[in-house]
Design a protein around this nucleic acid. Structure first.
Length: 572
RNA sequence: GCCGACGUAGCUCAGCUGGUAGAGCAACUGAUUUGUAAUCAGUAGGUCGCCAGUUCAACUCUGGCCGUCGGCUCCA
């Protein structure tokens, strides 16, 4: 079935959903009901709440409609006639849509006694619809506008065949097993605490190991590319944020505090800090570009309803950098950054999508500078042949940005890497450098993060690997499992040798059966298990079991350690 | 923030229409000394998210708050 037909099928299913809901809840007012990536939804305005218990009832009614094999009939009517029809029915949302349609003619689709304003197309008969399932109910603002009334949205999945639907549902179950919040608990990586505050992350030793491995990797790669690391404080007087414009444009995301009658701000961004360092002395055009990077922890107030495990939090650490450069260096810097992003994404095996986010309604600086900045970003993307979509109005207040989206286990996209061009903050802070002609010039800034935030990146990474990290990232790389406690000493000896070689090792010396120890290590997704008993102790060897392949043979300790060396590198 | 659902031991979850709580796993103790995904037995562990209210009596009902989940809006 082609993509178009699948959309048609799903859209038709949404009509049947609306039809069924009208049967069960007379008086319901209809919103809109489009197809989605794997199904459909329909929005309803109803005084009472639709509950999960209603879904089976609605599904049953939908199946009955399909069985009746009603014909979908298209009807063209004048706009006035349509408005009259829906006004009679009290469908105020449909009337609202109609009033905004330009053309004089509109189309209606009828099946049975159900009629909906609809561009179409639809399947010919309701009997074509064979495999669907209602999944969830959610609130959704009418037309997606926060100040509009909240409708009740029913989501469903629909496929051409039952097998495809089953496969989809199974896949959904599998995806839930990879959820970073579940794996974070099971693998003892991190926690969030109700008593400490929402959206604030506590890294346990294994999670901290994972994070520091990523930080080490990023630090090395930044230094390689001409960045210099800096550190800045987490709070600063409000004056700094008045200068930067944050108190104007970013206020609702900021935490304020008073110290000695002075108002302070907990930093929501790192840029002003890096700017202060740049501005400390006179710079020559020869000094540029200057690239400052740090793992900068920021705190942003996020609405309670948007928090989501590690993927959306209130306190997070960005692998942030600010490049101060001349205008003629800008494009080169952006291209270098894009290449850096591509390299890192490839290292972790992430697929990504790129957006170019343009000027928001509320912005600092001039429209001319914004246009210039957007043009440069666009050119850099084209230069690297990277496909992208425009995300209108999604830029930050000081400049446009290239956003790279990472996907979680359920296919939801989260913004990670970002590159932003900024002509504004350098002006606001009076930054300058002495040009070739001896005159003061204003530098341009590039704000960039390669991972985005460590929290979000780690959350996505956990789901990407399903918790089974590659060897170089595994918090515990090797688990040594003595067969009985008389082999504990030998296990410690093996452990010491491997640690000497820089391998992260654990010894499971509990008085448990070897089966229980293997099961535990396997569930903890440790890449290698070394079983040591009498045979191994006598021969000075280890029996190797791989997380993926099971038993893979016996080697001397030295050989095992030696053979691991390629896997210890991230570019293996 | 908004709509809806949920919040019981470290984890996963039972607990009917109100009569103050249970299982499995984990932990601890003991026995077992074990060869590639769970040895057996015992012990301990909870102010049932928090605060009010209704009631003779609240894990159970009502309200507020905190937090979580699915969305919407917003974002790294």
């Amino acid at each position: 079935m082609s993509k178009f037909d699948l959309e048609t099928l799903r859209h038709s299913t949404s009509h049947i959903l609306a039809q069924a809901v009208m049967e069960i809840f007379p008086g319901v007012k209809l919103g809109i009901g489009p197809s989605t990536d794997d199904g459909f939804y329909y929005d309803f305005d109803l005084p009472q709440a639709i509950t999960p218990e209603d879904l089976p009832k609605i599904e049953k009614a939908m199946k009955d409609i399909c069985k009746k094999n009603q014909k979908f009939e298209r009807q063209e009517v004048s706009k006035e006639e349509a408005i009259r029809l829906f006004e009679e029915k009290g469908e105020k949302y449909k009337v609202e849509i109609l009033n905004e349609i330009d053309s004089d003619k509109v189309s209606l689709y009828r099946n049975g006694d159900f009629v909906d304003l609809c561009r179409g197309p639809h399947v010919d008969f309701t009997g074509r619809i064979k495999a669907f399932k209602l999944l969830s109910i959610a609130g959704a603002y009418w037309r997606g506008i926060e100040t509009n009334p909240m409708m009740q949205r029913i989501y469903g999945a629909a496929f051409p065949t039952k097998d495809e639907l089953e496969a989809y549902l199974t896949n959904l179950e599998e995806a839930k097993k990879r959820d970073h919040r579940k794996l974070g608990k099971e693998l003892d990586l991190f926690s969030l605490h109700e008593e400490a505050g929402a959206g604030l992350v506590y890294y346990h030793p294994k999670g901290a190991m994972l994070r520091s491995l990523i930080e080490d990797f990023m630090k090395k790669e930044n230094l390689k590319r001409g960045y210099e690391q800096v550190y800045i404080p987490h709070i600063a007087k409000i004056d700094l944020w008045n200068t930067s414009g944050h108190t104007n444009y970013y206020r609702e995301n900021m935490y304020f505090m008073k110290i000695d009658e002075q108002e302070y701000v907990v930093k929501p961004m790192n840029c002003p800090g890096h700017i202060l360092i740049y501005g400390r002395k006179t710079r020559s055009y020869r000094d540029l570009p200057i690239r400052y990077f740090e793992f900068g922890t920021v705190y942003r107030y996020e609405k309670s309803g948007v928090l989501h495990g590690l993927l959306r939090v209130r306190g997070f650490t960005q692998d942030d950098a600010h490049i101060f450069c001349r205008e003629d260096q800008l494009e080169g810097e952006i291209i270098q950054t894009l290449d850096f992003i591509a390299f890192v994404m490839k290292t972790f095996g992430f697929d990504f999508k790129i957006n170019l986010s343009t000027r928001p309604e509320s912005f600092a600086g001039t429209a001319d500078n914004w246009d210039k900045a957007i043009a440069i970003l666009e050119k850099a993307l084209q230069d690297r042949g990277l496909p992208f979509e425009i995300d209108p109005g999604a830029g930050v207040f000081y400049g446009p940005k290239i956003d790279v989206k990472l996907k979680d286990s359920l296919g939801r996209a989260w913004q990670g890497p970002t590159v932003q061009v900024d002509f504004n903050l350098p002006q606001r802070f009076n930054l300058n450098y002495i040009g070739e002609d001896g005159k003061q010039k204003t530098p341009v800034m590039v704000h960039r993060a390669i991972l985005g935030s460590l929290e979000r990146f780690i959350g996505a990474l956990i789901e990407h690997y399903g918790g089974a990290f590659p060897f170089w990232l595994a918090p515990t790389q090797v688990s040594i499992l003595p067969v009985s406690d008389r082999h504990n000493d030998y296990a410690e000896k093996v452990s010491a040798q491997l640690k000497e070689a820089g391998i992260r090792v654990e010894v499971d010396s509990r008085r448990e059966t070897i089966g229980a120890k293997i099961r535990n290590a396997q569930m903890q997704k440790v890449p290698y298990m070394l079983i040591v008993g009498d045979k191994e102790e006598q021969a000075g060897t280890v029996a190797i079991r791989s997380r993926e392949k099971g038993e893979i043979g016996v080697k001397s300790i030295q050989d095992f350690s030696f053979d691991l060396r390629p896997e210890m590198r991230y570019n293996s």
